[in-house]
Amino acid sequence: MDVLTLISVLSAIGFSGVGSMLGIAMTASVSSRMIAEKPERFGLALVFTVLAETPVIYGLLVSLFIIMNASSVNDFNTSISLLGSGLSVGLTGLFSGLGIGIAGSAAIGAISEREDLFGKSLIFTVLPESIVIYGLLVSIVIIRGVGLLGGAIPHHIDSASAYTSLLSSVIICVTGGSGYYLGKTGAKAISSLLKDEDSFGKSIVFVVLIESIAIYGLLVSILLLRGAGMI
């Protein structure tokens, strides 16, 4: 395994791991406080805490894809592409984990007062998780593009395709920063649910507007990868 491939594995598991760690720390600390008062809501609090773990699972998945096929990576361009793949899932996982942590903490606070807000709070907590899913999608397309997924023989990757892959992953990582703000606005929206439950429909419009940034990032990344022949 060359250094670049190693860095791509580290990026995938490391950054997403930090995101999950921070997210779990935030939700778990609020959960601990809540179950001291309302132990019967342990299960609901656990749901939000577990949600923060998903970025690292996606990071782990991409790491495994790369590690299991590392022996067939033997040129610089493939390694550069894989670096893009690792960064995509890693950095989006970091932002996603942070966002889930912030929104999840607010959601646990809300359900400690009103259990019936579980479903609506869950939606606001799931929104930041979308970011790591977009990152994962770009990662999968790149890994598939270099021939490491689906048992295909590794394709020959030219330098233009390799750098386009890296660029497309930079785009999804930068736009993935919206995951943090999705968490922040989601937390505010959850607080407003406590005041007026009917605000759900309107709040979600505002929160989803932020997510659109990442979706445009995903769209551009996918189009770039298509242009580079990875799709």
């Binding site: 998945l61 979308s130 659109s212 979706i215």
Partner: peptide
């Protein structure tokens, strides 16, 4: 109008979640 585009692209999450499930299950 831009939301219509983002709405459609949003459905690609189905692919990502399926592949992550299969990948983890396989591992």
């Amino acid at each position: 109008v831009t939301r219509l585009v983002s709405n459609i692209v949003s459905y690609t999450r189905i692919v990502a979640i399926n592949i992550s499930h299969v990948g983890i299950s396989r591992a």
